[in-house]
């Protein structure tokens, strides 16, 4: 920095010195004005030279920037298929995440509702969902495992699976209930009914197991 400054000032000083010398060297006065003008211009050039350098650099930078951008664009542009694939992947990931989130929250709600309504302990609640063609989530099946608290028996769990109203095939039998007794059977039925109403699913999609209390 200091070196550069020294160079610059040296240049200016020398040019002024040379200009003075030339003024003395000139043969007559009629040329003096012209020579003085030119010398003044040259000295202005010397004083402005840092600005020239700056401008030059700017231009270079701009050129560089455009070239780099071009390259970048070209690189981005060519594998458009890749981009699309990436987008698809991302979309799928997002869908899956949403699905999982929905299932979880639904399971939670079902658990709470059944626990409060029927006074049984819900061991497990499982909701399976599926995306239909319009990217809308539909319930495929609901599985609930409960355990009766009150009595000393284990109530078998009920599992329900729900399917969307769409023609999803349900692999789940309406009730694999092996109710140990009549109470459990009716309880399972009630729960099934309740779930049917609140989630608008068919009986086939609901799977309830009631375990006997431990």
């Amino acid at each position: 920095m200091v070196e550069w400054l020294t160079d610059w000032i040296k240049q200016i000083i020398l040019l002024v010195l040379i200009a003075t010398f030339l003024d003395l060297l000139l043969p007559n006065h009629s040329m003096e004005r012209y020579v003085k003008l030119v010398m003044g211009l040259i000295i202005i050039m010397a004083i402005l030279s840092p600005i020239f350098k700056l401008i030059k650099n700017d231009l270079n930078l701009a050129n560089l920037a455009t070239t780099i951008q071009h390259k970048w664009n070209m690189k981005e542009m060519s594998p458009i298929r890749d981009i699309k694939e990436n987008a698809d992947k991302l979309q799928k990931n997002q869908d899956q995440l949403i699905q999982k989130q929905t299932e979880k929250s639904m399971e939670k709600i079902i658990k709470q509702n059944i626990q409060t309504k029927f006074g049984v302990e819900v061991v497990q609640a499982k909701v399976k969902t599926e995306l239909n063609r319009n990217h809308v989530l539909e319930i495929k099946q609901i599985e609930v495992v409960t355990r009766t608290k009150s009595i000393n028996q284990k109530s078998p769990t009920k599992t329900k699976s729900m399917e969307p109203v769409a023609p999803v095939h349900v692999e789940i039998t309406p009730t694999i209930i092996k109710p140990s007794n009549q109470v459990d059977k009716s309880l399972a039925k009630e729960i099934t009914e309740y779930l049917k109403q609140s989630w608008q699913v068919t009986t086939e999609q609901i799977h309830i197991l009631i375990e006997a209390p431990r």
Binding site: D7, I18, V35, S49
Partner: peptide, 21 residues
């Protein structure tokens, strides 16, 4: 001028002007 790294163009221009004069 060369020592102070004055632009050569400047110096030549100046000298040419004096010569013309």
């Amino acid at each position: 001028a060369t020592q102070a790294r004055v632009n050569n163009l400047f110096f030549e221009t100046i000298l040419k002007i004096v010569g013309i004069a």
